[in-house]
Design a protein around this nucleic acid. Sequence first.
DNA 1: AACCTGTAAGTTGTATACAGGTATACCGGT
DNA 2: ACCGGTATACCTGTATACAACTTACAGGTT
Lengths: 223, 223
Amino acid sequence: MQYPSAWLQGASLGESIAGRLRLQIIGGEIEPGEILSENRIAEGFGASRSPVREAFRTLAGEGLIRLERMGAVVVGLELDAVKELYDVRYLIESFAQQRLASRDNAALIARLEQQIDGMKLAARYGDCVEFAHQDFSFHERIVEEAQHTRIRHLWTSIRSIVMTVILLTTEKEFERGESRMIEVAEKHRMVIEGLKSGSEEKIREVVRAYFDDSDATLGRSLY
Amino acid sequence: MQYPSAWLQGASLGESIAGRLRLQIIGGEIEPGEILSENRIAEGFGASRSPVREAFRTLAGEGLIRLERMGAVVVGLELDAVKELYDVRYLIESFAQQRLASRDNAALIARLEQQIDGMKLAARYGDCVEFAHQDFSFHERIVEEAQHTRIRHLWTSIRSIVMTVILLTTEKEFERGESRMIEVAEKHRMVIEGLKSGSEEKIREVVRAYFDDSDATLGRSLY
DNA sequence: AACCTGTAAGTTGTATACAGGTATACCGGT
DNA sequence: ACCGGTATACCTGTATACAACTTACAGGTT
């Protein structure tokens, strides 16, 4: 398993190492409880400690590892942890949408619908990576549009993990066939309905429903 | 302005530098827009670039500075940004409390009440730092108790900032006299009421009220 | 047998060195 | 006066070096 190489374009060595470790940790190649040392990892990548150290700090910031006196212990991302992650996504997105509810969202909605169509197109062509990218971007756009610096910050702190999880689960869901993926794409319209309604209550409900459904999907695709 | 030295006990040089910079940034000594270079800061602290680099990453993770190709630009924490911070605190705490609502919280509540009394005691003795510490710990305990790894992680990402803001605002509020501080301490009982009720609706309402009131306080104490 | 101690290997935190890139200021040409 | 090119100083990313600390273990002591 590997990131689309485009994602690592222009990244520093440190970011690149963080990316690969992230994938190995989330993918389960590196197991929770394992202890990573800067030296060994550096040697493994044929790099020096500096970029590895930077990568460790990044991953610790994402909660994937925990820095201790002696070595970094892998926390990992079990099914329960992914559900927790989705709790946070729910909090962030429902907040963002409630913030958007009171303005004119015509342009945003048009853009989001375009991305749903992008997903469907990707589904028809069996392009799993592109589907995941559109899916991810859909949600990121909503957060971005809310123009709330702190919320955006919370988002960036889980951004990479969410991206990775979406990539992994999309790969698995693709195995269930094109019609299933069309269904997944269409599910996003629900969210748009919430936006259109402008009702705080409705938004909470719709976003909750969206992530509840995602939770169910998770059960199938992870482990 | 300075941290209680106890807070920096056992901290590495990097953490300590992060702490001092954080205080300078939030306190406004270093102004938003200013550009920090690793070299200059290192020289200023009589240290090498390594710990400064680490400090920069920490502060960037907290959103206090933004790392760019050339230098780190100070984002700062204006009044609006603090209000955004409180939005996030609201999200985190209301979530945490809703999670707690369904269990038996007798022990927790006893502990929280003890901390309220601690605040009142600090108020009577004019011990501003202790008051801030108790106040901070009160909220941290709630988050901690929810036992939700991801939420706890969001909390740690703003923890230092919240601590600093509470410290600064408490200092300012202390000038308004002891009775005002007793009032602030008592305000926390409201939150406990929410916990006791166990009603999702009531909790949202109470926590919302708490932070709305805090927002008002902010207006007085910052800038 | 239990415990204490000294040593050796490994780890992090910090300092320093080097390479590649970027902005700035200055200088010559038009 | 203005524009373009170059030299220069500075900045970040990475590599390497060193010191202090932690851990594990072996061997001697009680």
